Lab assay of single mutants.
Amino acid sequence: TTYKLILNGKTLKGETTTEAVDAETAERVFKEYAKKNGVDGEWTYDDATKTFTVTE
């Protein structure tokens, strides 16, 4: 399944996708990605669109 991440950081904005077996796995991948890019904020997930959003 393809999951999407929307980054709404103070200095970094953008989108990325990952293939994962479930939302929990995708969330771990995306949180590591955000951490590596210095983005830390509020996380939300929309199951209907398989989209995570992190907003600083």
Results as ranks from 00 to 15, higher is better:
Gly41Met: 02
Thr55Ala: 06
Lys13Gln: 10
Lys31Pro: 00
Thr49Ser: 13
Val39Phe: 09
Lys10Thr: 15
Val54Arg: 00
Asn8His: 09
Gly41Cys: 02
Tyr33His: 13
Val54Ser: 02
Tyr45Phe: 10
Glu56Val: 05
Ile6Trp: 05
Thr25Leu: 15
Lys13Glu: 10
Leu7Gln: 03
Phe52Asn: 00
Thr44Gly: 15
Glu15Pro: 03
Lys36Tyr: 12
Glu56Met: 04
Gly9Phe: 12
Leu12Ala: 05
Tyr33Leu: 07
Phe52Ala: 01
Asn8Ile: 13
Glu27Pro: 00
Ala34Lys: 01
Glu24Met: 15
Lys31Thr: 07
Tyr45Thr: 01
Val21Gln: 09
Ala26Ser: 03
Leu7Lys: 01
Ala26Arg: 00
Asp22Pro: 01
Ala23Leu: 08
Thr53Ile: 13
Lys10His: 09
Tyr3Gln: 00
Ala34Ile: 08
Asn37Glu: 14
Lys10Leu: 11
Thr25Glu: 11
Glu24Val: 09
Thr16Leu: 14
Thr17Met: 08
Tyr33Ile: 07
Thr44Arg: 07
Leu7Ala: 03
Thr53Ser: 05
Leu12Trp: 07
Leu12Val: 13
Glu15Cys: 03
Asn37Phe: 11
Glu32Lys: 08
Lys36Gly: 13
Ala34Asp: 00
Lys4Ala: 05
Glu19Pro: 07
Leu7Gly: 02
Leu7Val: 12
Lys13Trp: 10
Glu42His: 09
Thr25Gly: 07
Thr51Pro: 00
Lys4Pro: 00
Thr44Ala: 09
Thr44Met: 14
Val39Met: 06
Leu5Arg: 00
Gly38Gln: 13
Thr18Pro: 01
Thr18Ala: 08
Thr55Glu: 09
Val39Ser: 04
Tyr3Trp: 04
Glu56Ala: 05
Lys10Arg: 14
Val39Leu: 11
Glu19Gly: 07
Val21Ser: 07
Glu56Gly: 04
Phe30Met: 03
Glu27Cys: 05
Thr1Gln: 14
Thr18Glu: 07
Glu32Leu: 15
Asn8Lys: 09
Gly41Pro: 01
Tyr45Ile: 01
Glu19Asn: 13
Ala48Phe: 12
Glu56Phe: 06
Thr53Arg: 09
Gly9Lys: 03
Thr16Arg: 15
Asp47Cys: 04
Glu32Met: 13
Phe30Ala: 01
Tyr45Val: 02
Glu42Gln: 12
Asp47Ala: 11
Val21Pro: 15
Asp46Ala: 07
Thr11Phe: 14
Leu5Trp: 02
Lys36Trp: 11
Thr17Asp: 12
Val21Asn: 14
Glu56Gln: 09
Ala34Ser: 15
Leu12Asp: 08
Val39Asn: 03
Tyr45Ala: 01
Leu12Ile: 13
Tyr45Lys: 01
Thr53His: 08
Tyr3Ala: 00
Lys50Gln: 15
Val39Glu: 02
Val54Tyr: 02
Gly38Thr: 05
Tyr33Phe: 08
Glu24His: 07
Thr53Val: 12
Gly38Val: 05
Glu56Asn: 03
Thr16Phe: 08
Tyr33Pro: 00
Ala26Glu: 00
Thr1Pro: 06
Thr51Lys: 04
Glu27Arg: 11
Thr25Phe: 09
Glu15Ile: 04
Gly41Gln: 02
Lys13Asp: 15
Ile6Pro: 00
Ala26Pro: 01
Lys35Met: 09
Arg28Ile: 10
Lys36Cys: 05
Phe52Val: 01
Ala23Ile: 05
Glu27Asn: 07
Thr2Ile: 09
Thr51Met: 09
Glu19Thr: 06
Trp43Asp: 00
